[in-house]
Structure formats: structure tokens, C-alpha cells
Amino acid sequence: MKMDIILAGVGGQGILSVAAAIGYAAINEGLHIKQAEVHGMSQRGGVVQSHFRISDQPIYSELIPLGKADMILSLEPMEALRYLPYLGETGWLISNEKPMVNIVDYPDADALYTSIRQVENHVLLDTDKLARKVGTAKASNMALLGAASAHLPLKEKSLEKGIRQLFKAKGEKIMEMNINAFIAGRSLALEKDAV
């Protein structure tokens, strides 16, 4: 088993927290992981991406080769499309639909959605809205992780445990809000799949 994921978003959206939660879950299941992060200048409202690799075998490269990613998981629709050349033929494109407009030439959102829907395996949903319903739009990243969870090679329970490990230091309330966002994202994605 191997699962190569490109995590995408804009500085401040919490993409590295998604990576950390998946990381805890994978380690809890005794899997190998490698994760390349972006730090520094890119955080100032710029592009943030992470290559995240999970396998039951040793992993060599920090970087995922082009055309080999099994999933692009994005907190922002334009960022979801930025890494299209990495996505394998049967790969999943899972994205939040809420645009983050901090540039003057941001494209038409409907055109972005049309492109995303052209990928056979896609999930497109407003995780900001979902997260707001359970308490705070800040948990949008965990709602997105929930939406992706059915397509990850990790047990739902280990992901929940991973989220608890990640937010333990922030207190019970924040931890529960993030768990609820995760569950909301997971339920909505499963509903959509069923349609």
C-alpha cells in the first residue's frame, strides 16, 4: 500500500495541521511516512504546499513524481488546480470551494469549479461553511480532512485520535470543535458519494 498526497492551500489556512493530523494517524497505524513542507517566505499570504507520502514499505523520495499523486487535498479551489500535473490517472481531487482572493487577477470561481469537476474522482464542498456550523471557520481544514478520510488508507478512529493528539494542548473545547468539523466533513462527503 502507498498513498501520495499533495496538500495545498494559502499561508495561514492550516495545511500543515492537516499534514500533522494525518502524520499522527499514520504513525499510530505503524506506517512509514515522509512529508516535505514549505516554510518561510511562502507563508506571507503566498502558496503553501506539502508532499505527504504514506506507505507500508520504506519511502525514498521526499517529493512525489509528476503524475503519481493519489490525491490532491486543497483548502482553496485555485490551489487545487495548481498541482494538476502531479495527479495520477485515478487520483482524487478534493477541495474546499471557498476562494481565497488576495490577488488582483484571481480567476472566475465557476470556471475553477468546472475544471475541478472535469477530474473524474473529485469532491468539492464548502468546508468553511461546514466548520462554521460546528463552531468556527478555522476548523475548515479538519472538515476537509473529514471529506477526504473515506479515500485515505487510514482508519477513521486513528484520524480522530490524530486530531486529538494535535489539538490536545489547545484545550478540550477546541479539540472537540475540530473533531466535529472532521465528522461533518466526512458525513457530507459520504452523502455526496452516495448520490
Binding site: V10, G11, M41, S42, Q43, R44, G45, G46, V47, M78, E79, L81, R82, L84, P85, N102, I103, D105, Y106, P107, A111, L112, S115
Partner: peptide, 11 residues
């Protein structure tokens, strides 16, 4: 690559 994608420099 998608032609819709624009650069998003840090600011």
C-alpha cells in the same frame, strides 16, 4: 497544467 491558475506571490 490548468490555464486558470495564477501566481500568488507572498505579500
Amino acid at each position: 497544467p490548468s490555464i486558470l491558475v495564477k501566481g500568488r506571490p507572498p505579500s
